[in-house]
Design a protein around this nucleic acid. Structure first.
Lengths: 199, 199
DNA sequence: GTATTTTTGTACGATCCCGCACAAAAATAC
DNA sequence: GTATTTTTGTGCGGGATCGTACAAAAATAC
């Protein structure tokens, strides 16, 4: 296995042994699998290969690391939407790509289908933690907003409403994936949603 | 405030000081607000008025108490669907009652809108804990199944598909409520979903 | 009134976990 | 080569948490 993620030189002191982006990716993976509250810093240190003090130095405390992971995922999702918007598919093909892409992502996971980190782990913390609640709201808004753009592009008569429904179905696909629903049923739901939105 | 929830006599030893159902309700409330992993037994003891050893004696460990709370909520939801099925509304009225009832429930909470305990707290544990995952799957199936029955009753041409979409929108309404989405927007989404399902 | 049974409530031990202190290590600057 | 700077990694202290042991309390059975 290659691990060539080189690190930008930092000028003076001892060079970092880890790649910040890779560590963030590993930490996010762990948070997504275990949930925020169940993920200990020891596990994060083990998963990232970075010991606790270095994690603190690089990211701050546990919550800051989690929020950084959410922000990274936010950026990844955003660029995915940029790409999908770029190809300019007709309505049906766009919906298909949207739903099926989401499903495949949601079926991913270290120990089984894990859905969306925001919908399925941030939500648990959202009532008592305003920062995480805002991050979750930001995710929802990102998805709603982009799908609305896609709907406009595809000539929807009610882009906002159609986007809210498509986005909602995606939320549910995330929950269902995590509940163990098999791929075939997720795809059936996506097909039905597509049919309703095209009618 | 009245508290007349009397306790069934238990025959021999010292009588219980608490009502099992009331304790379960209080515990579930706390789990819903804080999430499973964030809820300590000390908090549960404080919220229920039952000290830890008595909680263990009555329900078993923390997970058993949580699962009992989910089961109780499951039963409550089930009886709600029984009632909704009993009134035999026409399609539009039925969908309105379904969505608006869900929204009002999701906006409930000790410290702000808390959504559905299963969708928003069980999901976080679902990847690593098979018991909780099954409980979540049971919730999803309960809702899908009942809404399908309602769709049949209301004369839907595709009861299964329509039910899956309606159910999915409800999942998302739960997530959105927890993210802080205001009631008006939740209602707008419900209206749009109703329109699509009636088309 | 005595024995039995069940619940209560205090107290405890063991574990886990977070966040940081501190010295060693590894680089650059001069 | 010496000083400076930054990261590493061990190790620790305080605190929270889970689950249980054990004696006191409160009821019934005889």
């Amino acid at each position: 296995m290659r691990n060539d993620t080189k690190i930008a030189p930092r000028g003076r002191g001892r060079p970092r042994k880890f790649d910040e982006e890779a560590a963030l990716r590993a930490a996010s993976q762990r948070f997504r699998t275990l949930g925020y509250a169940n993920t200990s810093l020891d596990e994060l240190a083990a998963a990232t290969g970075v010991n606790r003090p270095s994690l603190y130095a690089a990211f701050g405390d546990k919550k800051a690391l989690y929020l950084a992971g959410l922000a990274r995922t936010h950026a990844v999702v955003d660029s995915t939407f940029v790409a999908l918007h770029g190809v300019n598919y007709p309505r049906e093909k766009m919906l298909k790509a949207l739903f099926l892409g989401a499903i495949e992502g949601f079926l991913t996971g270290e120990y089984g289908p894990s859905g969306c980190i925001a919908v399925n782990t941030a939500a648990a913390e959202a009532v008592m933690d305003a920062d995480i609640r805002e991050a979750l709201a930001g995710f929802v808004a990102l998805q709603d907003g982009w799908i609305e753009k896609l709907m406009v592009q595809a000539g929807s008569a009610d882009p906002r409403g159609d986007a809210q429904i498509a986005s909602s179905v995606i939320h549910s696909l995330s929950t269902r994936a995590r509940a163990g629903t098999p791929r075939a049923e997720l795809i059936a739901i996506a097909k039905k949603a597509t049919a309703l939105l095209l009618a």
